[in-house]
């Protein structure tokens, strides 16, 4: 079992990698983010800052503050994937202008897509913030 402190550092790495990854797709590869991608970015980017501060301050209470962001992102990511994989028809999608939320821009190894990466990140973060972890005193 991870210690609380370690789970915060691990969550910070997940959030920072997701943030840099999304910036790589939009700024380096020039793939325009769709509306739902933007909502997920809104939930992901602040986590890098608040988890970073919490790690520096050894403040494990941050999980309480970070969880709502992770769950919000997770809900949007689930919805995005349902649209993307045509489980929900696109006609009810909120994306009417700009790039469609179901446009396939990347498919690595025939499986990994951008919405799937986002879903994996938010799911992992939600788990890290909810699963019980060892307090520091027992760990050291």
């Amino acid at each position: 079992m991870l210690t609380s402190q370690h789970s915060i550092l691990f969550a910070w790495i997940v959030a920072a990698s997701s943030t840099l990854g999304s910036l790589f797709f939009s700024e380096v590869m020039r793939l325009p983010p769709c509306v739902l991608c933007w909502y997920q970015r809104i939930a992901m980017y602040p986590l890098v800052l608040i988890l970073g501060v919490a790690w520096l301050k050894d403040d494990t209470r941050v999980k309480l503050y970070a969880l709502p962001l992770a769950v919000t992102g997770l809900v949007i990511a689930i919805y995005h994937n349902l649209l993307y994989y045509k489980i929900i028809p696109e006609s009810i999608s909120p994306c009417v202008q700009g790039i469609s939320c179901t446009t396939r821009q990347i498919q690595w190894f025939g499986l990994i897509t951008i919405p799937l990466l986002s879903l994996a990140s938010f799911a992992l973060l939600t788990l890290l913030f909810t699963l019980p972890s060892r307090p520091r005193s027992l760990a050291s």
Binding site: L9, W12, I13, A16, S17, L20, G52, W55, L56, K57
Partner: peptide
Amino acid sequence: MKKNIYILIGVAASL
């Protein structure tokens, strides 16, 4: 706290 800063900076620099 000091150790944490070094870890954070190290990981951030790697990423």
